[in-house]
């Protein structure tokens, strides 16, 4: 293994991502967990840059470390957030879950640890956004339009779900 700059960048980003995930599991306050996960999301954006997917990296920073984290923080602040989320559930349950996940990870790792296909030179890094735009508007135009419908449905649906129904509550009282 040669310690090139790319390799060092990968190791640093992977370390930050995994540390963010471990902090998510180990911190006590709920808000701290969400803020720890921002590190993971930004590091994953860096991983995308290493994989010559610059547009996906920009989208990752915009959507995940911007929108989704903020929406989760809103969700925490609109609900009860002062209690610390420590585990009251049984230790045995956690132990068995940990063992099961460890077994799953081992099984997958056997599948991937010497996965090696011959690297073909790609042109993904040249005009990445242009390539994505051309593919989206020619080959994947129907899924693209369906995605807009899906986002509209999610928008309307979440407003209806979260709307404070004052009239119904007044009827109840």
């Amino acid at each position: 293994m040669i310690f090139t700059g790319e390799f060092l960048a990968f190791m640093g980003l992977a370390l930050v991502a995994i540390i963010g995930g471990v902090l998510l599991l180990n911190l006590n306050k709920v808000i701290h967990m969400v803020v720890a996960l921002i590190f993971t999301f930004v590091a994953i954006a860096g991983i995308y840059v290493l994989l010559s997917a610059e547009f996906v990296a920009a989208v990752q920073i915009l959507i995940y470390s911007g929108a989704i984290t903020i929406i989760m923080l809103f969700g925490i602040m609109l609900t009860k957030h002062d209690d610390e989320s420590e585990a009251k559930s049984g230790k045995w349950r956690k132990l068995f879950l940990f063992l099961g996940i460890l077994g799953f990870a081992f099984a997958v790792y056997i599948g991937i640890y010497n996965f090696n296909v011959e690297q073909v030179p790609t042109k993904l890094h040249e005009n990445n956004t242009l390539q994505i735009g051309e593919a989206l508007y020619s080959k994947y135009i129907i899924p693209f339009e369906l995605t807009s419908v899906l986002l509209l449905v999610a928008l309307v649906g979440s407003i209806i779900l979260a709307k404070n129904d004052k009239k119904k509550e007044a009827d109840k009282e």
């Binding site: 997917a53 989760m72 809103f74 990445n128 593919a135 995605t147 999610a154 979440s158 779900l161 979260a162």
Partner: peptide, 22 residues
């Protein structure tokens, strides 16, 4: 990469609806 973009948009919609349910 295009599939990753679709997955990101579906995940964003899922987060919004999940939070509304919450």
């Amino acid at each position: 990469q295009i599939f990753a973009l679709f997955a990101i948009s579906v995940a964003a919609a899922e987060a919004a609806v999940g939070l509304a349910i919450l």
